[in-house]
Simulated scan of single mutants.
Amino acid sequence: MSLLFNFKTFVFGLFVYYTTYLHYYKCPSLTPIVELENKILHPLSNQHSILCELVNGGIEKAEPYVKQAHTFLDNNVHSHPLFIEYKIEEYIQCAHNRFSTYIYPLVHQLYEFTDVAETRVYDEVTAYYKQAEEFVHGKLKQD
C-alpha cells in the first residue's frame, strides 16, 4: 500500500514539476517567431504550445479563487495587529529575496537540464520507434 502511495506521490510531484517547468521556463520563451523557428528545427514545440495553452487556461480558471484568497488574507491576516507588530511582511520579503538570489538560479539550471533531457529523450524514442516500425514492416513484407 505504501509503495502505491509513494508512486502516486512521485507521479504527482513529476506533474507539478513539469507544469512549473512549462509555466516559468518554456511558455514565456514561445513567441510566435520562436515557435515557427522551433517547429522547423524540432517538432516538440508543437506539443509545448498545446501544453502551454492548457497551463494558461488552468491559471485563468484559478484566478478568481486566487483573488478571493488574497482578499481574505488582506482582510483577516495582513491587517491583524500581530502580523503588523512582528513585521511578518518583512520576513516574507526577505525569504523572497533569498529565494531569488540563491535558489532560483539552481532551479533555472534544472529547467535548462530538463529542456535538454526532454529533447534527447524525444529524439531517442523517435529513433527507436522508427527502427521498430522498419523491423515490423520488413517482417510483414517478407511474409
Score class of each variant (00 low, 15 high):
residue 90 E to K: 12
residue 30 L to W: 04
residue 63 E to P: 07
residue 66 V to L: 11
residue 1 M to D: 13
residue 55 V to G: 00
residue 103 I to C: 10
residue 113 F to M: 12
residue 81 P to T: 00
residue 57 G to Y: 05
residue 62 A to L: 15
residue 122 Y to G: 04
residue 122 Y to T: 04
residue 60 E to Y: 06
residue 39 K to C: 00
residue 24 Y to H: 10
residue 135 F to E: 01
residue 48 H to N: 04
residue 138 G to R: 05
residue 58 G to W: 05
residue 32 P to Q: 02
residue 109 Q to E: 01
residue 82 L to G: 01
residue 9 T to P: 07
residue 112 E to V: 12
residue 118 E to V: 03
residue 136 V to Q: 05
residue 138 G to P: 01
residue 35 E to C: 10
residue 9 T to C: 05
residue 43 P to W: 01
residue 77 V to F: 11
residue 76 N to W: 13
residue 92 I to V: 15
residue 143 D to S: 11
residue 40 I to D: 09
residue 98 R to V: 06
residue 95 A to S: 14
residue 84 I to K: 11
residue 10 F to R: 04
residue 109 Q to W: 03
residue 81 P to I: 00
residue 42 H to R: 03
residue 82 L to K: 06
residue 139 K to I: 11
residue 11 V to R: 08
residue 72 F to S: 11
residue 122 Y to L: 02
residue 36 L to P: 00
residue 37 E to G: 04
residue 1 M to S: 15
residue 29 S to Q: 15
residue 142 Q to E: 12
residue 123 D to C: 01
residue 49 S to D: 03
residue 17 Y to R: 07
residue 135 F to T: 01
residue 32 P to M: 06
residue 118 E to F: 04
residue 91 Y to T: 03
residue 20 T to E: 04
residue 111 Y to E: 02
residue 65 Y to N: 06
residue 6 N to D: 15
residue 10 F to Q: 13
residue 103 I to Q: 06
residue 32 P to D: 10
residue 43 P to E: 02
residue 106 L to F: 06
residue 5 F to Q: 13
residue 123 D to F: 00
residue 45 S to T: 08
residue 74 D to F: 09
residue 94 C to T: 14
residue 73 L to N: 12
residue 45 S to Y: 01
residue 142 Q to V: 07
residue 63 E to S: 12
residue 113 F to Y: 11
residue 5 F to C: 06
residue 47 Q to E: 12
residue 105 P to M: 06
residue 106 L to K: 12
residue 99 F to E: 08
residue 83 F to N: 00
residue 86 Y to H: 14
residue 79 S to Q: 12
residue 116 V to S: 05
residue 16 V to S: 02
residue 40 I to C: 13
residue 33 I to F: 11
residue 37 E to C: 00
residue 62 A to I: 06
residue 75 N to G: 03
residue 46 N to F: 04
residue 143 D to M: 12
residue 89 E to T: 05
residue 95 A to E: 02
residue 81 P to G: 03
residue 137 H to G: 00
residue 26 K to A: 03
residue 46 N to L: 02
residue 127 A to Q: 04
residue 118 E to N: 14
residue 21 Y to D: 01
residue 30 L to H: 03
residue 122 Y to N: 03
residue 39 K to S: 14
residue 11 V to F: 15
residue 55 V to L: 06
residue 55 V to Q: 02
residue 67 K to H: 03
